[in-house]
């Protein structure tokens, strides 16, 4: 599903490329060459990528939870099959991304430890609850829509394995967004109660979706360096604006109202202007105080622990088979 402007979570300072190897590396990036796993790279580049890719992977995995919540209650067999396929895709996206992170020399078990220990971040959006079926539609339409906006530029990221994983993911996201919009459209054309449910979902998911693009450019810590390294191609605010501009007309088509009284079309700029984003809410969710942070981590830990015996049994079985074959 998606990553947030994950550059906002980092701690390590980024050194200037003074050494010859670093200058050569930057020259390769400037020439639009791709960096591959065994190539020399600055430690800070490696660390930035490990952090960003693993946070992205964690987001996919945690992102299975809010939607998984509705699998047993999907309103028809068709919707259920679609939702299962979508949630399975999210799991697959997590796997592509953990795989890409591992090419940088980290172990998957270590990354998963970090998620379960609560020391790694994942996208803030998944700390909101899915209260009604319309939320499944809103997530596909808005959250996956925002994800696509963020992820398409990463298909051209300088690090080869990340870029390739992202190409695969972006191909699959389009189905996610369209099935979400179809759910919203069905509700919007339904009974008054269904229309109200769709509006309520938009009311609750609109602002968190805008926050998915991360802090405004003025407050984003690592955008400049990530852009020099071509890990990031557009700033948070640029991407957010693009998302608003394409999504507002879609909401109008649905006959739904964007929950922002300040929203207006700026004819001169050819953009929609939005009201201010409540960054205190964003920070609170990032710091673990969103509506579902504790629930999400508890669910991941429980799943990991419940699967422990299976992993051990499979390893023991494989060991035994190897010994017998020897």
């Amino acid at each position: 599903m998606y990553t947030q402007a994950l550059d906002s979570h980092g701690k390590e300072p980024v050194p200037a490329p003074t050494e010859p190897a670093a200058a050569h590396f930057q020259a390769r990036i400037d020439a639009d060459e791709k960096i591959e796993p065994k190539d020399w790279m600055p430690d800070a580049y490696r660390h930035t990528l490990v952090r960003q890719i693993s946070q992205h992977a964690h987001s996919e995995i945690v992102g299975m939870l809010p939607e998984g919540n509705w699998i047993t209650r999907a309103p028809s067999l068709r919707r259920k099959a679609v939702l299962i396929a979508k949630v399975q895709d999210e799991g697959g996206h997590g796997m592509y991304l953990y795989g890409a992170a591992e090419t940088l020399g980290v172990e998957r078990a270590e990354l998963i430890e970090q998620l379960l220990a609560g020391t790694a971040k994942y996208s803030s959006i998944f700390n909101y609850p899915t209260l009604t079926w319309a939320d499944v539609g809103a997530i596909g339409w808005l959250v996956d829509g925002a994800a696509i906006m963020n992820q398409i530029p990463i298909c051209r990221c300088s690090y080869g394995p990340y870029a390739r994983a992202m190409v695969r993911i972006c191909k699959e996201e389009s189905f996610h967004q369209r099935q979400g919009f179809e759910i919203m459209l069905t509700l919007a054309r339904g009974s008054a109660a269904q229309q109200a449910m769709a509006q309520d979902a938009l009311d609750r998911w609109w602002w968190p979706s805008l926050m998915m693009f991360g802090p405004s450019d003025a407050d984003s810590k690592h955008t400049a360096q990530s852009m020099r390294w071509k890990i990031k191609r557009f700033s948070n605010d640029e991407l957010r604006q693009k998302f608003v501009d394409i999504t507002v007309p879609q909401a109008q088509f649905l006959g739904l109202t964007i929950p922002d009284p300040a929203l207006r079309w700026n004819e001169g700029a050819q953009h929609f202007e939005t009201g201010p984003i409540d960054w205190r809410e964003f920070q609170a969710v990032l710091q673990g105080n969103g509506p579902c942070n504790r629930e999400r981590l508890a669910a991941r830990r429980a799943a990991h622990e419940a699967g422990q015996w299976v992993r051990e049994a499979a390893a023991a079985h494989a060991d035994k088979a190897r010994r017998r074959a020897a």
Binding site: G99, E102, A318
Partner: peptide, 12 residues
């Protein structure tokens, strides 16, 4: 080549 997976054995 498309990527990688972890598995206990070749069949998995």
């Amino acid at each position: 080549h498309v990527g990688s997976v972890h598995a206990a054995d070749a069949r998995m």
